Simulated scan of single mutants.
Amino acid sequence: MHTLYFTRHGETVWNVENKICGMTDSPLTERGRQQARELGEAVKASGVHIDEILYSPLSRAADTAMAIAEATGLPARCEPRLREQCFGKYEGTPRNGGEFRVSKTHFADRYDGGESMMQLAQRIYNLLDELKADTGKTYLLVAHNGIARVVQSYFYDMTNEEYAAAGIRNCELVEYHFE
C-alpha cells in the first residue's frame, strides 16, 4: 500500500465570479496565490513524505504547484492528463446553472464541443493506474475540482448523484491510499 495526495488549485477570478472554468485559463486571485503558499508551508511543516508534484498545464494549477514546490523544495512537473475537463458550451456560465447541474449527471454528454465524463475518467484512471504501479514514489497531484471527483471515484464507490455533487475546496489537501 502506498499514498497519493491531491489538491485543487487556489482560488481563481472565475471561482469568485461563480463561473465554470473548465479548460478556460482563469488566473489565480491574490487570495489563491496566498492559499497556495500556505498549503506549501503546511505540507512542509507536516512532515508528510512526497517525492514529486505532478500538476495540470493550466496556469491556475501550475502556479499553485510552483508555490508548493518553492515552499517544500519538491520537484514538480507538468502532467497534461491532469488538465480540467472541457465543459464546452458551459465554460464561463454560472456553476450552479440548472441545465449544467443536470448535464453533469449525463456521463456520455460532451457538452456541445466539450469532453464527456467518460473520456475524462479514462485519462485520469489511466494515470492513477500508472501511479499505483509505481510503488516506490508518493505523488502530490495539483489539479481541478472536476479531476478531484474522478480521483475520488477511483478510490471510493459513488452513486451518480454523489459523483456529480462531489468536490473539494481550493487548496484542500486530500490523502488516498492505493491498496
Rank of each mutant, 00 (worst) to 15 (best):
C21K: 05
L28F: 09
E161H: 11
R81T: 07
V151F: 04
R101F: 07
T12D: 06
G167I: 08
G92R: 02
A36C: 13
E91Y: 04
Y176S: 06
K132I: 00
T135H: 15
T24H: 11
G88C: 14
Q122N: 13
V13L: 13
E91A: 04
L58V: 03
C78T: 09
A133P: 09
Y125N: 14
S26P: 05
G32W: 05
L4A: 09
R110E: 15
R37M: 13
E11P: 04
H49L: 07
Y154T: 01
E30C: 01
G47F: 10
N96I: 02
K19N: 01
A42F: 01
V142C: 14
V43R: 02
T12I: 09
T24D: 07
R8C: 09
I50P: 05
T72K: 04
S153Q: 08
T105L: 14
Y176H: 10
Y55V: 09
A69I: 02
G73H: 12
D109I: 08
N15K: 00
D134A: 04
Y125M: 01
V48I: 15
T7C: 07
E115V: 08
C21N: 10
F100M: 08
I147Q: 01
D51R: 10
A76C: 13
Q34F: 05
T159K: 02
A108Y: 02
P27W: 06
Y90I: 01
F87H: 08
Y154L: 00
T12P: 11
R37W: 04
C21G: 10
L127I: 06
S116W: 12
Y156G: 02
H106K: 13
F100V: 11
E115C: 05
F6E: 03
T93L: 12
T29V: 02
N170D: 14
N96E: 10
M23W: 14
S46E: 12
V142D: 11
H9N: 05
L140C: 13
A45H: 05
